[in-house]
Structures are given as structure tokens and as C-alpha cells.
Simulated assay, not measured.
Amino acid sequence: MSVVAQVFVVVAGVFHIAVFALESLLFRKPSTYKRFLVKDDTEAAVAKPWAFNQGFYNLFLAAGALGGLIAGGDKGHAIALFSCACMAGAGIVLIASDRRMVQAAASQALPPILALVLAATL
């Protein structure tokens, strides 16, 4: 895998670690839950268990991407790229489910898509 593709794998992994922090650690803060279109404390209390679980999903995707790079070789790179494919797919589902989330979906999906394209072409 090219160095440029690896850079985008790292960007995608770091982004998903940040989202983990928002969803699993900081979700009850109004400035955080409003990013996810949650209106108030009542809605945040209902959504918190889902957000907590979703945060760990993002952490595990990041672990696959970054861990695959660290492991290296064909198998490690395959794990990293599979994680990127899952990240890209989740971003596509996000925009398909709610057009108001276009910026979040682009932030989530573009780095792993670039990693996949660059890994396939370079």
C-alpha cells in the first residue's frame, strides 16, 4: 500500500477515534449531542445508550484501520482496507438516511474512500 493511501487510513482512523470520544465519553454535553441532531437533555438521555454503543463501533473500526497498518504486510493492509470499506459504507448510509448529515457523512466517508482508491491505484 502506498504511503499516501496509508496517510488516509490514519486520517480515517483518527477521525473515528474522535467520534468515539464524542459518542461514548462526551455525549451528554449539549454541545456534543446537538452535533448529532439531538434536541435536548430528554432526547439525549434516550439516545445515550445507542450513542455509547455506536462510539465503540467507531473505536473498533479505528483499531482495525490503525492496527492493520501497524501489523503491516498484505494481511495487515487487508484488515486496514476492510475497516476503511466499513467506514465508507457507514458514511454512505448516514447521508442516505438523513441529508442534513452531509458534512458529517463526508468527514466520515471521504478519507477511507480515498485510502481505498489510492491503495487500488498506486
Rank of each mutant, 00 (worst) to 15 (best):
P111Y: 03
W50E: 08
F27H: 09
D40R: 09
F27D: 12
V117Y: 01
P111S: 03
R28L: 15
L114G: 03
N53Q: 13
F60L: 14
A65N: 02
D40M: 10
K75E: 12
G91R: 00
P49I: 12
I92S: 01
A12F: 02
V3H: 08
S97D: 07
D41W: 02
I95A: 04
A119E: 00
M87E: 11
A45T: 13
P112D: 09
S31V: 12
F82L: 15
L110K: 01
A106D: 02
A119K: 00
F82K: 02
V38I: 15
D41I: 05
Q6N: 13
M1F: 10
V14K: 05
A21Y: 11
V7M: 07
L25K: 08
A18I: 09
A104G: 13
A120Q: 07
R35G: 04
D98R: 08
I92T: 12
P112W: 01
R100L: 06
G64P: 08
S2Y: 02
A80N: 07
I79R: 03
Q6G: 14
D40H: 08
C86H: 01
Q103A: 11
L94S: 13
T42C: 00
H77I: 07
V117T: 01
F36M: 11
H16D: 11
Q54R: 12
I113K: 00
L114S: 11
L61Q: 11
G73R: 08
A104M: 11
G13T: 10
A63P: 04
N58E: 10
F20Y: 14
G67C: 03
V117I: 15
S24P: 12
Y33H: 14
L110M: 13
Y33A: 12
G73M: 10
L110Y: 04
S107D: 04
G89I: 01
L61H: 05
V4S: 09
A109P: 07
L25P: 08
A44Q: 04
I17P: 00
I17F: 10
L118N: 01
D41L: 08
V9Y: 04
A78H: 06
L122S: 09
I92C: 08
V117H: 00
